[in-house]
Amino acid sequence: MTPTPDTPAPSTMLPKPPALGAFEAELGRQFPYLARVVDKRLETFGAPWADEFDRELDAMFRGQPDKLAQAARGYAMFSLDAMRLQKKFEKTRRYEAKTYAEAAREVYHNREYMVDLYLPGILLSHYLWPHHYRQLQFFRQAYLPLVTQLRAELFYDVGIGTGFYSRQMLSAIPEIRGVGFDISEHSMEFTRSLISAWGHAPRYLIRRQDIVEAPVETPAACVISVEVLEHLENPIPFLRGVASMLSREGVGFITAALTAPNADHIYLYNEVDEVISQLDEAGLRTDLFQEEIAYEPKVDEPVPRVAAFIVRRKAV
């Protein structure tokens, strides 16, 4: 990006690979101050972060400047919406009252919101929000080696969202096949696009299926479910469904957002122990977990957090 006299220059203007540079320029064109996030994350996570984010952007938006611009806008507005809700949450310490049916209608089945804002926003947040990127690092460093050890041939992704974690599995383990489940046609469409962009479509199926209402009968050695629990009124039946999808020797990766309001977050987790307790009640033993914060809190300020859990079925 070439700063004009009235355009704030990124703080250091570190060199970037081409797709990341194009994204930074686009973000800076639409939202001048927000483009600084790219340099800040590059300073924190280094060249490997820049290279993999560059590949992600290239795969999804190569030759599609309009889509890149839409994604940049989606990310900015998604981040702003999240912070607006976070400030309300600081006062109330509650998520705005919403039923699952309301969230489904307002968010999951709302094409304009999902396609223009929510899904691109979440996809980019996996690299631009530090707690999301650290969760990804935990997935790679702690979970994927277990999947490799198991020589797993099949994984399930329950609540695919953008398909980002399914894509990670498929890219990391060339011989594995996956099945993704979601209730949103827009998530399915977005995931199909992401998986295809990476050339993984022949190894991946997407099913529109609520695994509580229509349980999956054939277990898999690996089941992942990323940031689904907080979208539910009662996560226990869902977790029981996930547990039943996991084979006896299998290993699961489940995450939850804590004190992190969003347009479709219903179930409030304040502490990691609450999630571990629910996993236990659903028949899942937590072997390892990692919790990350979005930013350093001020005194008594609740900040968005994510927690990821590596789980196995409890012995009967």
């Binding site: 704030p8 220059a9 703080s11 101050y33 927000l34 483009a35 600084r36 996030v37 800040k40 981040s79 702003l80 912070m83 607006r84 400030k87 930013y295």
Partner: peptide, 20 residues
């Protein structure tokens, strides 16, 4: 006043500023 004059004016604080 612009961001360059304020060392803590980063992307996160810019969003905080907007919301405030």
């Amino acid at each position: 006043l612009k961001a360059d004059a304020v060392p803590t004016w980063d992307s996160l604080n810019h969003i905080n500023l907007i919301v405030a």
